[in-house]
Amino acid sequence: MWKILFLIHVGLAGIWATDYELLLEDPDIFTPCTEAPPGTIFIRDAINFDQLKVEQEADTIHISGNATTTWDLQPNDRIAAKFALFHHQRGNWEPTVFTMATKDFCPMMYDKDQYWFKYWTSFITNREDVEQHCIKKLGTTLIHEPFDLRLMLKNIRGATLSGRYKTVISFEAFDERNVPRPHGVCFEIRGEAEKIKK
């Protein structure tokens, strides 16, 4: 009996799962973090996007070209990365359960199970160079094949997502003694959550 109830629950949960996408507020996509630690720099201070073409059309972002790192770290530095989703309620940004973090981003850049691989690094064509230097070495060029991006959360179960949301993405560098470098990187992507009709 319990097995049957469990199978019914799993089946219904699959049916009730919903996909959402974030419709961007700002055509520039990235905005500075509103609550960044002192000394934190904006993504455009860590990576030069002058040669990267980004065009927004309805719910799709078209990306092509190159980006070049200007964040100058040491080869043995470790970069921790974090992604967190916040919901705007009653004038405040409240955290949600959607968070992803890694203590060592560089070895994970090309991990096929990670969101940044699916949405970003899988489209960087000079993989060998990027894997060697990550985003630590000044002047490393990230060469992108043209790709389309939709900011989506898939198979969400539970409460319905609606209203304004922001994604806060941060990178923090640590030296060989595990001491934080003075300038971490932080940026936000803001938009309106919309249910995708299937």
Results as ranks from 00 to 15, higher is better:
residue 32 P to W: 04
residue 32 P to K: 12
residue 32 P to V: 10
residue 32 P to Y: 02
residue 33 C to D: 03
residue 33 C to K: 09
residue 34 T to H: 08
residue 34 T to N: 09
residue 35 E to A: 11
residue 35 E to C: 05
residue 36 A to S: 13
residue 36 A to G: 07
residue 36 A to W: 02
residue 37 P to G: 11
residue 37 P to N: 09
residue 37 P to F: 02
residue 37 P to R: 08
residue 38 P to K: 07
residue 38 P to T: 08
residue 39 G to P: 05
residue 39 G to E: 02
residue 39 G to Y: 08
residue 39 G to H: 13
residue 39 G to N: 12
residue 39 G to S: 04
residue 40 T to A: 13
residue 40 T to Q: 03
residue 40 T to P: 06
residue 40 T to N: 01
residue 40 T to K: 09
residue 40 T to M: 07
residue 40 T to E: 04
residue 41 I to Q: 12
residue 41 I to M: 14
residue 41 I to S: 09
residue 42 F to D: 02
residue 42 F to Y: 14
residue 43 I to V: 15
residue 43 I to L: 08
residue 43 I to T: 04
residue 44 R to K: 14
residue 44 R to G: 04
residue 45 D to H: 11
residue 45 D to F: 01
residue 45 D to V: 01
residue 46 A to T: 00
residue 46 A to F: 00
residue 46 A to C: 03
residue 46 A to V: 01
residue 46 A to W: 00
residue 47 I to W: 01
residue 47 I to G: 01
residue 47 I to P: 05
residue 48 N to C: 11
residue 48 N to A: 05
residue 48 N to S: 13
residue 48 N to P: 08
residue 49 F to H: 00
residue 49 F to Y: 07
residue 50 D to Q: 14
residue 50 D to E: 14
residue 51 Q to W: 08
residue 52 L to M: 14
residue 52 L to Y: 04
residue 52 L to R: 04
residue 53 K to P: 05
residue 53 K to W: 08
residue 53 K to F: 13
residue 53 K to V: 15
residue 54 V to Y: 06
residue 54 V to H: 08
residue 54 V to I: 15
residue 55 E to S: 07
residue 55 E to G: 08
residue 55 E to Y: 03
residue 56 Q to F: 05
residue 56 Q to I: 13
residue 56 Q to W: 05
residue 57 E to I: 14
residue 57 E to S: 12
residue 57 E to W: 02
residue 58 A to S: 13
residue 60 T to E: 08
residue 60 T to I: 15
residue 61 I to S: 10
residue 61 I to M: 13
residue 61 I to H: 07
residue 61 I to N: 10
residue 61 I to T: 15
residue 62 H to A: 12
residue 62 H to N: 13
residue 62 H to E: 11
